[in-house]
């Protein structure tokens, strides 16, 4: 059984993925943060126990999603929902992902190294929560151009993350070889 401190520690470690699960519904960074915080709060205040990390994370995704739905309800926003089976598939994929701190560090680095236009796009789209059409208006671009740039941006970030992870892995395996 996970102790309270282990529960908190593992939730904090899984914060990005839990907040991301909420974001898929809210599409609002700040609201997703609130949902994550609610998950931590519920884990601390409700009498729930978890036999292992997988059980904790499954519970956390469900709670985060419910909280995201509550937020949508409260703020009067209506969003198209994915099919329940698809959401379950996404949860499974989320749970299967390892809590890879290297991947998150790499993603942070890659985001930090974006050029100004890339940063602006990310800010408008994901931090300010603008729709693609609004982004196009602010950046004085056509809608297809915004789709194209966002697509390139995501692809570039994925490649950058993969590249950095391979550097991490080769560096750590060399360090292990050096030790042995």
């Amino acid at each position: 059984m996970l102790s309270e401190s282990e529960v908190i520690q593992k939730l904090i470690q899984g914060r990005t993925r839990i907040a991301a699960a909420a974001w898929l519904l809210t599409r609002d960074y700040h609201a997703s943060e609130d949902c994550f915080q609610n998950v931590v709060l519920k884990a601390m205040t409700k009498e729930v126990t978890f036999p292992n990390q997988a059980a904790l994370m499954s519970w956390a995704f469900v709670v985060a999603r419910r909280d995201a739905m509550d937020w949508l309800d409260r703020s009067g926003r209506k969003v198209a929902m994915l099919d329940e089976n698809v959401l379950a598939c996404l949860d499974q994929s989320q749970t299967a992902l390892t809590a890879d701190s290297n991947r998150l560090v790499a993603l942070q680095e890659c985001l930090a190294s974006l050029n100004e236009e890339g940063k602006r796009l990310m800010q408008l789209r994901y931090f300010d929560g603008l729709r693609c059409e609004q982004v196009a208006e602010v950046m004085r671009l056509s809608l297809p151009a915004v789709y194209k740039r966002l697509s390139r941006l995501h692809e570039g970030l994925s490649q950058c993350v993969r590249g950095k992870i391979s550097v991490f892995e080769s560096t750590s395996s060399k360090a292990m070889e050096g030790k042995s």
Binding site: A19, A20, A21, W23, S32, L107, M122, Q123
Partner: peptide, 9 residues
């Protein structure tokens, strides 16, 4: 979705 959160961070 993960990129959106980390970008926010």
């Amino acid at each position: 979705s993960e990129q959106a959160i980390v970008a926010g961070d």
